[in-house]
Write a protein that binds this DNA or RNA. Structure first.
Lengths: 213, 213
DNA sequence: CTTAGTACTGCCTGTTCAGGTAGTTTAATT
DNA sequence: AATTAAACTACCTGAACAGGCAGTACTAAG
């Protein structure tokens, strides 16, 4: 039995979702709240499995709410269900820990499936949201700039804070050999120093970003 | 009518997918290929709407294949369908331009729906793939490490390749004032130099990463 | 065979950086 | 009124870095 709480300021939405979800034999809506503040003051709030959360709320904004929930109740899954599909809000909510993002026009069937999907370790998303997420992954500035294997190695070592000497030992080159590659890297990335090169390297996805794999 | 081509080295998989997709009245499989090289030499290859692409292929790897397809035939949608769910391959394929990523265990219904979904502007993904993608978005090490506003400003300036002097002018401080903050940043991030600090700053989402928003 | 390009190695020079230590100002605490 | 901490400013030193220039070895192309 999946225990769900709903945080949504619009009464009709709230009741509609509750009705839909309660209709499913595997799901029970334990409570509904009008705002994040309301929800956090309820002492049994943590006693759920999943929260349906609206973005545009009076008081604490949904994108902030996710953050608080993830910190205070790390076991709760948060599913955003909103009318907004603006990039900024989507990404903020996801960065802050939401597991999925649905648009309010979801059908009843999609809604219950999304809840089950989330509990099963999935990340339900409306198709166009998914596309936005994927698009944001793709190399935007993939124009021309590619580093050779050695350059990538060197840049990666630099991002770990190694000195030229340390890099040289790591990649089995002379210090000047390392410098040779670094010069080329600077030229390719139009960078003036290690810091800028590393920043661009990470941003252009040229060196692995542990955050991304 | 959605025109689909399949690139997959396993004969049974290839025929299975073709049968499934051809069964749907809205989809037609125009051709199947054993490798990327095969596909690219076919002159009518560009005359499709969507490509189902395996990752592990003889010759050109699927993750590279996506890249070539996106460059040579920008109008083609590429849907990865593979047995691999390793983070690295998923992200590489998506970064290189795939619109979706399915695991081979998809049901026939899911497969046909995914194809239609992709053509409709969606990004079909197996639930656990979706979760991985979403997880990669989230602030991983958001614990403890926070920078003050000024520190963020300084670090951000460093990531743009500015020298201490240039940073000082930008944030209206003395060079030593900048150094004061940088020392604190190094301590907080456990970094030894600008490069490492910038790398960690971006990876911990402490400074804006244009690539992610 | 010559030429050109790539991948280094080596050195020299001035600049920038990192660490250490110390002093000042301001604001909050006691 | 005294104490403490945060946010600077200042200076000194040696190490690290960036740019310029030169040379070598190897490979591919004309």
């Amino acid at each position: 039995m999946i225990k769900v709480a709903i945080i949504e300021d619009n009464e009709f939405m709230r009741d509609g979702w509750k009705t839909i979800l309660d209709f499913d034999p595997d799901i029970v809506v334990t409570n509904t709240y009008q705002s994040c503040e309301d929800a956090f003051s309820a002492k049994d709030f943590g006693n759920n499995d999943l929260i349906l959360l609206d973005i545009e709320l009076p008081g604490m904004h949904g994108t902030e709410g996710v953050k608080v929930i993830r910190e205070q109740y790390p076991h709760l899954l948060v599913l955003m269900v909103t009318i907004h599909d603006e990039n900024e809000k989507i990404f903020k909510a996801l960065r802050n820990g939401a597991v999925g993002y649905l648009l309010k026009k979801v059908s009843p069937k999609e809604l219950t499936e999304a809840v089950k999907n989330a509990v099963d370790g999935g990340s339900p998303m409306s198709p166009n949201i998914a596309r936005k997420v994927i698009t944001s992954f793709q190399n935007k500035e993939d124009d021309a700039v590619t580093l050779s294997e050695k350059e990538t190695e060197v840049l990666s070592a630099l991002s770990d804070g190694l000195s030229y000497k340390a890099v040289a030992e790591k990649v089995f080159l002379s210090v000047d050999g390392v410098r040779y590659h670094i010069r080329n890297i600077y030229q390719k990335l139009e960078a003036r120093n290690r810091a800028e090169a590393v920043a661009k390297g990470i941003r252009y996805n040229l060196i692995s970003n542990p955050g991304n794999s």
